[in-house]
Design a protein around this nucleic acid. Structure first.
Lengths: 241, 241
DNA sequence: ACCTTGACTGTTGTCGACAATCAACATATA
DNA sequence: TATATGTTGATTGTCGACAACAGTCAAGGT
């Protein structure tokens, strides 16, 4: 009767800590994850650490090299390029599904978020911009109300999230304003209930965002982060589906 | 110098065994996975079993109930319905990407597979039909050459595979022939390099296949497998992405 | 100088045991 | 009888220890 929120399991706590550390850039791509070290950091035994790492591996955030050593995954430019059409396709599907169901109130909510992005940008609060951007897309993903779609999008966002957060994307240029404009266009098409228009605009918006990001990311200047393509990428799962 | 293929790790072996057991229907939906029992079956300690189960959990094949007990996931009809537009969207994207790259030789390969499906169907070898069907789609997924897309599709197929395999889908009716016809149409549009046509036909093919499947699956007669919706579905991950 | 050999180290894989949790049942008390 | 309390069994969570394996380095032989 006293303690409401029980502490999450060790595995969950470690998973979340590592996930945040990776996506926030504290653990850089290519960085090794040594169970013994983590054991000291978290003051637990290796068992829950191993399980947490397995989960990160399933997320694609951690990869195992030929010697079974674990590393933070290093996204290549190609990985990111690959993600563009997939995410564009899934987000536009979400928008399409949402069009029929979305209420005026929810569109207003989106409008409010878009204004908040504007304000955060004016105030120079770029991490808030990032968070609000995710919030914007989460709204119609929720309206679309499709678990499989939600899962698919989350999987992609999770595995590349750190790139967004660790990047300079949300700073110092006119990228946010154009994103805000595109959001406004999307809202307009939601209001008109024009499914094809919604779909097209969301698809293009996602493509634009990712391509803009790609242009100004480190990829174009120095290629890749450390560890090039030396470490296996996800897709080495045991089964052959 | 003597042993070429080293034995996979315990975790991989257990993962594969359980994966196959679940998708083949040997472990029925709702069925509990008790570590102690599996320990006896596989003659290993609980550590690798726990890790394998974590992976299955990440795949969405195993869910954890409120009392932390592990169960084979029970897909609801809604889950399957949710998957239809997502898989249709992703497969048609794969087809679109493949259209530009696919060679005449590869189209011929697809044609060959389609004929093999026909033969297997005539011979009454339905499980071969299923396998060849997957092979057909794998071809242009491979041609599309997009790791992110491959990952997304595999994730969906993995989590619902058992339904296909455990079902009566590939038996006793005219569903296969119409699938073969649709494949032929897809091939034709690949040959014409008409991207929009390819995209549309693949999308419709996937939608048709899944809807036909849905119609004749157990869902329509007795609703759901045991355990209804009592057990949490995937999506209860610790983080809030 | 070059190659082998063997010991040492760092790291992961696996194990058996103990602790914690919860359901189910039994027992006690009003 | 009904409610509260204790006990037991089943199951999962966590731990510390050992085994296995690759990499490094130094000693020794050719």
């Amino acid at each position: 009767m006293t303690d409401f929120r029980k502490p999450k399991s060790m595995v969950d706590q470690i998973y979340i800590s590592l996930f945040n550390a990776i996506t926030a850039g504290a653990l850089e791509p290519g960085c090794r994850l040594v169970e013994q070290d983590l054991q000291k950091d978290f003051e637990v035994s290796r068992a829950p650490i191993r399980e947490a790492i397995r989960l990160l591996e399933a997320d694609g955030l951690v990869v195992v090299d030929a010697y079974k050593k674990k590393h933070v995954r290093n996204l290549t430019r190609e990985d990111l390029v690959d993600n563009i059409p997939v995410l564009a396709c899934l987000e536009s599907l979400a928008a399409r599904l949402a069009t029929a169901k979305i209420t005026t109130k929810q569109i207003d909510e989106l409008e409010g978020i878009n204004q908040e992005i504007q304000q955060a940008f004016s105030a120079g609060n770029f991490s808030k911009c990032a968070e609000l951007n995710f919030a914007f897309h989460r709204v119609f993903l929720k309206v679309a109300d499709n678990k499989a779609l939600h899962r698919a999008i989350r999987s992609i966002v999770k595995s590349t999230l750190w790139l967004w957060l660790a990047s300079q994307y949300y700073k110092n240029n006119a990228i946010i304003p154009s994103s805000i404009e595109e959001h406004a266009l999307i809202l307009e098409s939601f209001r008109s209930k024009d499914v094809r228009l919604v779909e097209t605009r969301v698809r293009e918006h996602i493509e634009n965002v990712l391509e803009r990001f790609l242009k100004q990311s480190k990829f174009d200047t120095e290629g890749i982060y450390q560890f090039g393509g030396a470490i296996g990428q996800p897709g080495n799962e045991p089964s052959e589906i």
